[in-house]
Design a binder for these strands. Structure first.
Length: 576
RNA sequence: CGGCCCGUAGCUCAGCUGGUAGAGCACGUGACUCUUAAUCAUGGGGUCGAGGGUUCGAUCCCCUCCGGGCCGACCA
């Protein structure tokens, strides 16, 4: 029986599937299919003079079909791109039996099907490099129609653009939107380039716990979970900083991790609940050294991805060429507001903030106000990569106090395209100072700051044994990828960005309809007519239901004997 | 959490403040031996996101809900 939930096109494809099987062809063959080249290799290397690619075997998905009687053109898409295939009846079927062309290819194959093609490469009269198919095999039959995107002279028609569908069904997005695929290839290039840089320096890639009994290393609200055997609360990490520093205590001179972190906070085009950071810790270095390292690393990444240090991002051309501009936070504020706040006390800072239109309130300390002024007045204006150094101590409980300026810490962020891309410091290794800083955080926590850090006794104990002076870095992989791929949203650089679960419409089980006295063969039809629950049948007009059911029966050629109005009345009476 | 916008065929979109829906592509059938957004002819395809209200009558007006986008708030 026909499934009433399927669209016309899906029904036709399932029928094609059966016909393929009845011709003795397996639409999902088990055997491996050997390919000896790919679309891009052919398109970039084929030449008539060389007469190469005369025995190619490739596999891919059918993306377009242009059928004209005994000759056809299709485009197939493989891992590297698209290539046109010329399918001529008598080349594909040299013998008497033309079934493979006339029936299988022309009638039973569809856009979206995955096939293998063997043949020779040539150039058509229109000048397009194509494969002349002498062999064609179905590798996987597609029973759902793909979005059809057309293109001519670089102009895209009917692009598949609905963000909801693109993110929930990323596979479709990847099939029909080549630029999406390209962004993800660049993302992997970025992490490969970074890893190569770090390995070449001799640092050790490590893995540390994602499930942590205490969350630390950043200011954020965590996800909470529970371990059954331990009967204990665990948190998904918000950062891995404290574990990596314990490894530095343990004697590794350089450790890094590409870490998925989880923060239970708002979502927007710059924030996803899970995101990736690369954290790096190097012993006997300080934040000045780390700035040089970041410049060198990001410049290399830009060169590896784009072949140049210049990257177009929105309206801006961003240049990652070293050296980057450097400002202390006070200098940056002076640069963009003309006001020198370096010597101001809390009252003067509050006055200045108000004058500048920056919102402040009584709960904010000196550090928070400075940070707020910077965030409002400077950050968005920093388009070219710029280091901002020397932050107020209140904002940075894990950073070492500044070697020469009171009230500041040795910390820097790199700002690019108006957004932070990394955060680093000379790590605090004085265990007594560290304990005091944690205690200040505890006070903030008691005042209701949900993001205040918790005191991590294990970490403190570790650095009491002595941690070498260390430079530490956290660099946001998603944000850096956004810049390197000119993406407007973090969703465009995550394969599967977090989406709200769609609620399925309430639907009663068929048994519930059966219990209510509806004959089993009519249940799907009743549901198709819009009555997904037994409840929804109560009190409705028998004649109108009769009309709908008989109509559906006829329309879908189900061939059931129509019930009489009295039959339907009796069903409905039992319900009421 | 607040403001604005969106949800109609497999896809991209029309639809006059109200009379139960249209186009292009895709799909079916037929024609066509080098096409390329193939073409020509013809046909089918829709609980108009869900529920409720107003109305003789709702894709359209009102309310609630679901999902998404943008901006802001919060936040790195």
């Amino acid at each position: 029986m026909i499934n009433l939930d399927l669209s016309e096109q899906e029904i036709i494809r399932r029928q094609s599937l059966e016909e393929i099987r009845s011709l003795g062809i397996n639409p999902y063959p088990a055997a491996e299919y050997n390919v000896n080249t790919n679309s891009t290799e052919i398109l970039s290397n084929y030449s008539v003079e060389k007469n190469n690619f005369q025995d190619v075997s490739i596999a891919g998905r059918i993306m377009t079909r242009r059928i004209m009687g005994n000759a056809s053109f299709i485009e197939i898409q493989d891992d590297k791109g698209k290539i046109q295939v010329y399918v001529k009846r008598d080349n594909l079927c040299p013998g008497e039996d033309k079934t493979l062309y006339n029936t299988v290819f022309k009638k039973l194959l569809d856009i979206g099907d995955i096939i293998g093609v063997k043949g020779n490469v040539f150039i058509t009269q229109m000048g397009e490099t194509s494969i002349n198919a002498v062999e064609l095999i179905i590798l996987s039959k597609s029973i759902k129609p793909l979005p059809v995107v057309k293109e001519k002279d670089g102009v895209i028609y009917d692009a598949f653009t609905d963000p909801d569908q693109r993110y929930r069904q990323r596979h479709l997005d990847l099939i029909v939107n080549p630029h999406v695929r390209d962004a993800f290839l660049k993302r992997t290039k970025l992490t490969n380039s970074m890893r190569e840089f770090l390995n070449q320096k001799g640092y050790l890639e490590v893995e540390t716990p994602i499930l942590q009994p205490l969350y630390g290393g950043a200011a954020a609200r965590p996800f909470k979970t529970h371990h059954n055997t331990l009967d204990q609360t665990l948190y998904l990490r918000i950062a891995n900083e404290l574990y990596l520093k314990r490894l530095i205590v343990g004697g590794f001179d350089g450790v890094y991790e590409f870490a998925k972190d989880f923060r239970n906070e708002g979502m927007d085009r710059f924030h996803n609940p899970e995101f990736t950071q690369m954290e790096l810790y190097v012993a006997y270095k300080d934040y000045n050294w780390m700035m040089n390292t970041v410049e060198e690393m990001v410049e290399k990444i830009a060169l590896d991805i784009h072949g140049t240090t210049e990257v177009q991002v929105g309206d801006h051309k961003i240049n990652f060429k070293r050296p980057w501009k450097r400002f202390t936070m006070f200098e940056a504020i002076k640069e963009f507001t003309g006001i020198d706040i370096s010597q101001m006390d809390e009252n003067q800072l509050t006055e200045t903030a108000k004058k500048l239109g920056v919102e402040v309130n009584d709960t904010m300390g000196k550090g928070k106000i400075i940070d707020e002024i910077f965030g409002e007045m400077c950050e968005a204006k920093l388009i070219q990569p710029t280091f901002i150094t020397d932050y107020p101590v209140e904002m940075s409980p894990l950073a070492k106090k500044h070697r020469s300026v009171d009230g500041l810490v040795e910390r820097f962020e790199a700002i690019c395209n108006g957004k932070e891309i990394c955060n680093a410091y000379s790590e605090l290794n004085d265990p007594i100072d560290q304990r005091e800083r944690f205690e200040q955080q505890l006070i903030l926590g008691k005042r209701g700051d949900e993001e205040a850090m918790v005191l991590d006794e294990d970490f403190l104990k570790a650095i009491e044994y002595g941690m070498p002076p260390t430079a530490g870095l956290g660099i946001g992989i998603d944000r850096l990828t956004m810049i390197m791929t000119n993406s407007q949203s973090i969703q465009d650089v995550l394969f599967f960005p977090q989406m709200r679960q769609e609620k399925k419409s309430q639907k009663d089980d068929t048994s519930k309809f059966a219990d209510a006295g509806i004959p089993s063969e009519w249940i799907p039809i009743v549901q198709k007519s819009g009555h997904l629950t037994v409840e929804s049948l109560k009190g409705i007009n028998a004649a109108s239901l009769h009309n709908k059911l008989c109509g559906t029966n006829k329309k879908h050629k189900l061939g059931l004997a129509n019930p009489s109005i009295d039959d339907i009345k009796s069903w409905l009476e039992k319900l009421n």
